[in-house]
């Protein structure tokens, strides 16, 4: 049985009907065509699907769309613009914080969640915070550097 949901996605009001078993990541990618949010493992381990729900980073592969009814959602498409990268995205670019780029949307959304709570994280805090995000290319060093640089840019912004 279809259920109606309403939410705000990247500042835009959205109203749709979905099956209760529809996952938020499916809703974002397939119904909203916001394909920046990726599906890596589909088992809530890799973090490629991280989006913000009411300001908090969560794994959208492990959340039903109906659970997000009434929520304020932010995806990677809501960060920066085609003309102007967000300072955190620019930091990933400058610091070679990505290779294939598959994990990057989740990394950036997770990093922004960290900066929200802790604007000046130590390297150890960044590494602990990345517990739920897997990257198979970089070996993480440049991701950590990117987040340090992004945090610094945002503090000086």
């Amino acid at each position: 049985m279809l259920q109606s949901v309403e939410m705000t996605i990247n500042g835009k009001a959205v109203k749709e009907t979905v099956e209760p078993r529809n996952l938020l990541v499916e809703f974002l990618r397939e119904k909203q065509r916001l394909t920046g949010t990726h599906v890596g493992c589909d088992t809530s381990q890799c973090g490629a699907c991280v989006v913000h729900v009411d300001g908090k980073p969560v794994k959208s592969c492990t959340l039903l769309t109906v659970q997000a009814d009434g929520a304020d959602i932010k995806t990677i498409e809501g960060v920066g613009s085609d003309q102007q990268l967000h300072p955190m995205q620019e930091a990933f670019r400058q610091n070679h914080g990505l290779q294939c780029g598959f994990c990057t949307p989740g990394m950036v959304m997770t990093a922004l969640g960290l900066i929200e709570e802790n604007p000046d994280p130590t390297e150890t805090e960044i590494r602990q915070w990345l517990e739920g995000n897997i990257c198979r290319c970089t070996g993480y060093h440049n991701i950590v550097k990117s987040i340090q640089a992004g945090a610094k840019a945002l503090r000086e912004d």
Binding site: S44, G47, P57, V58, T62, L63, W129, E131, G132, N133
Partner: peptide
């Protein structure tokens, strides 16, 4: 427990 995203839910 788990990771930050899991702790948020």
């Amino acid at each position: 427990i788990g990771d930050p995203q899991v702790r948020n839910r």
